[in-house]
Design a protein around this nucleic acid. Structure first.
Length: 229
DNA sequence: GACCAGGCACATC
DNA sequence: GATGTGCATGGT
C-alpha cells in the first residue's frame, strides 16, 4: 500500500457503501460447493434465476460433485433451465465437478488447501471458468484473499472516475489488492457492495439521486457519462 | 419488444 | 489485441 491517498479513497468508498447498504452477508449458499455452483450458474444471469436452478438441484438431491457428473443429461438440463444457457452450464458445471473429484476427492476443503496462486491457475484451466468465476470461487468458497472484478465494479469505477474502468481484469484486481488491507472478509463485502451500488444507482444517469458515493466523489466524476465497458 | 442480468469461449479481423 | 457472436431464461 505505497500510495496511501489511493488507499484512503478506496476505504472511504467502502465506508460510504457499508453505511448505506449495511452488511451483505455475501455469498449466499449453504456450503462451499453450493457457492461454487452458484458462481458458475450466475454467469451473465440474474441471481434470482440461479436460485431456482439451485433449488432444483437440492430438490433432486444432486448437489454433490459426484452426482452432477453422473446424472442424466436431459434431467440436468431441466434442472438448470431456469438459470439460462442450460446446455452450456451443464457442461461447465460438470467440468468443474470432474476437476474437483479427480484432483481433490470431491472435497472443497481439500481443494482450498492449495496455495491461492496455484489453485487460481488450475481453476482457470477448466473450460467454462474465467477470471471472475475463478475469483468468486477462490474468495467466497475457499476464503482466499482475491478481489473480484465484475461488470458492476467496472461500471461504478467508470461512473465515478475512481480507476480506469476499461483496464484489463488483472490490472484492476491488482489495483484493489495492492491498495487494500489483505482481509478476505473485507473483500467479500466490498465486492458485494460494488454490485449493490452498481445495480441501484450507477445503471443510468437518471438513477444517480441518493447515491452514497456522490458526496464523496463529486469532482472526480468523469465529464462525460461513460458507457459500460 | 428491446434491454439487461453477479461471463466465457471462440472466430475473425 | 480489440471486437463480435452464440449461448437461454425471466424480469423491467
Amino acid at each position: 500500500m505505497e500510495n496511501m491517498n489511493e488507499s484512503n479513497i478506496l476505504v472511504n468508498i467502502y465506508r460510504r457503501l457499508e453505511a448505506h447498504f449495511g452488511p451483505t452477508g455475501w455469498w449466499p449458499g449453504d456450503s462451499p460447493f453450493e457457492v461454487a455452483v452458484g458462481a458458475i450458474l450466475t454467469q451473465n444471469t440474474a441471481w434470482v434465476n440461479v436460485e431456482k436452478a439451485i433449488a432444483n438441484l437440492k430438490e433432486s438431491e444432486w448437489l454433490t460433485p459426484e452426482l452432477l457428473i453422473t446424472v442424466d443429461d436431459d434431467a440436468l438440463h431441466e434442472a438448470l433451465r431456469p438459470s439460462g444457457y442450460f446446455r452450456l452450464k451443464t457442461v461447465r458445471l460438470r467440468n468443474f465437478c470432474r476437476y474437483l473429484v479427480e484432483h481433490h476427492g470431491g472435497c472443497m476443503e481439500t481443494m482450498a488447501k492449495l496455495p491461492v496462486e496455484r489453485l487460481r491457475l488450475e481453476l482457470l484451466a477448466i473450460q467454462g471458468i474465467g477470471p471472475e468465476t475463478a475469483d468468486c470461487i477462490l474468495l467466497y468458497a475457499c476464503g482466499k484473499p482475491v478481489f473480484v472484478i465484475d461488470a458492476y465494479t467496472r461500471r461504478v469505477l467508470g461512473r465515478h472516475g475512481i480507476a480506469e474502468a476499461t483496464a484489463p481484469y488483472e490490472a484492476l484486481r491488482h489495483y484493489f489488492e495492492e491498495h487494500l488491507t489483505r482481509d478476505e472478509g473485507f473483500w467479500k463485502e466490498y465486492h458485494a457492495l460494488f454490485v449493490y451500488v452498481g445495480k441501484d444507482f450507477c445503471r443510468s444517469r437518471a438513477r444517480c439521486d441518493g447515491c452514497p458515493l456522490r458526496p464523496l466523489l463529486r469532482g472526480r466524476e468523469p465529464a462525460a457519462w461513460p458507457r459500460d465497458p
